[in-house]
Design a protein around this nucleic acid. Structure first.
Lengths: 165, 165
DNA sequence: TGCAAAACTGTTATGTTATAACAGGATTGT
DNA sequence: ACAATCCTGTTATAACATAACAGTTTTGCA
């Protein structure tokens, strides 16, 4: 079993998140080098900002931070960077939040399935290749060929459930 | 097995869609009467417009049509009607399209899982209580309690696949 | 019936998210 | 060195959604 490049960490507070970020950036550098595509300064910084946030980040939140740092800060700048990062599988867009989050395993082939906590706002990738298989089979039964999957489950994460238990 | 109130019809052209619409409206009338809530003229008309469309309808498309008919046509009018209809389970919102579509089985307890054709733009509800069960179990394994589910599969519907085969 | 509370609608304004279109600059391959 | 490609800057605008407050209709109940 291959070691994941970036530990999934969204629901666990007690870890060195700086390390997560560094690892994520290093992985991105490597992937882009392999693929002969360019992780330019804006793109890299956007990826870093996305990773730095506990919770999925809206495009305009990213934009504001870039602006503070002297980067150009018109919307297309951010949307272009995000588009690139999505194409490379480095970030996922969460449709139900209109927000973006770092991908925990950009080199592993997968779809972004998410668990989204309505309390703390964190989003965590849901494990489960078999689920995708099941979804696709059910769709096929209705004659439908699936190309992309949006699966976003909202509820309470372990931490936020605790006080209620 | 109870007969569904409204045949699911999004991917089948050859049927009397007027009948679907009438049935959907009649079901809505009945449900609202049972629940002692008010299917007012705007709400009813919005539901009808949503049903009349082949493809999921954006709020501003609905708004434009209401305007043409002399209804008040500021955004809140439509969003309020849609909110009501969603609460009553009469329409679903499709997050990945920012659009709304009629619910095929408003009296049956279910979540809106969708198959969305990227070619013709139609959306079809995906059957499958077992899938929900599987998703919830997988989430539970990660300590997460699911409250709401967004499942939207994009791809090609039977009709649009045909020419390719 | 009459009145207060609740539900619904009208209206204005504004907030939020995303893209079009075109110009200019950097990088790459040959 | 230079042409092609890719990337970024900039302005404008499109598309989606809600806040806040005023007025009207309906409902429940004394």
């Amino acid at each position: 079993m291959p070691t994941p490049q970036v530990a999934s960490c969204a629901f666990s507070d007690e870890h060195n998140h700086q390390r997560c970020i560094r690892t994520a950036l290093a992985t991105a550098e490597r992937l882009c080098a392999d693929r002969r595509c360019r992780l330019t300064p804006v793109r890299k910084r956007v990826l870093e900002l996305v990773w730095q946030s506990h919770t999925p980040l809206g495009a305009y939140q990213i934009l504001a931070q870039l602006g503070d740092e002297g980067f150009n800060s018109a919307p297309p700048t951010v949307y272009r960077a995000l588009e690139f990062l999505q194409e490379q599988g480095l970030v996922h867009r969460i449709a139900s939040l209109n927000a973006f989050t770092g991908c925990c395993a950009p080199d592993r082939q997968h779809h972004g399935y998410f668990l989204i906590c309505r309390q703390c706002g964190r989003a965590h990738e849901l494990e489960g290749q078999p689920l995708s298989q099941a979804l696709r089979e059910q769709a096929a039964r209705q004659g439908f060929m699936v190309e992309a999957e949006t699966v976003e489950l909202t509820g309470l994460c372990p931490h936020c459930r605790e006080p209620l238990a």
